[in-house]
């Protein structure tokens, strides 16, 4: 089964950041997220994580959340893929 985590994550970021269609396609592994985008504050990140849980059907434990996984698109994608693999 092809892994659609990348696509779903871009969709969620589009919804949370209010991006235009296609804008999230320019994100690469190094694109900065939490701490790099002023609008992505703690409340927005909390919403993003809840949405990740709902759409990827995973549960994110508090102690799994760290700065590294939230800092870049690549970090968040790797985390989401690993969670889905074990879900």
């Amino acid at each position: 089964m092809p892994d659609d985590t990348d696509l779903l994550l871009r969709r969620i970021l589009t919804d949370v950041l209010g991006l235009k269609q296609g804008q999230a396609e320019t994100f690469d592994a190094g694109t900065g997220l939490f701490g790099h985008l002023p609008e992505l504050d703690s409340m927005a990140v909390a919403g993003l994580l809840t949405e990740l849980e709902d759409r990827l059907d995973i549960i994110i434990e508090d102690d799994e959340i760290d700065g590294e996984m939230l800092e870049t698109f690549g970090g968040l994608l790797e985390f989401a893929k690993a969670k889905r693999a074990t879900a």
Binding site: F34, G35, D41, S42, M43, V45, A46, G47, L49, T50, D62, I65, D66, G67
Partner: peptide, 21 residues
């Protein structure tokens, strides 16, 4: 509540404080 608690923990962590749910 879950979302708001998570936001508080994220904000605290950014400020170097560890708060548990």
């Amino acid at each position: 509540l879950r979302g708001m608690l998570r936001a508080r923990m994220l904000a605290s962590r950014e400020a170097g404080l560890a708060e548990e749910r």
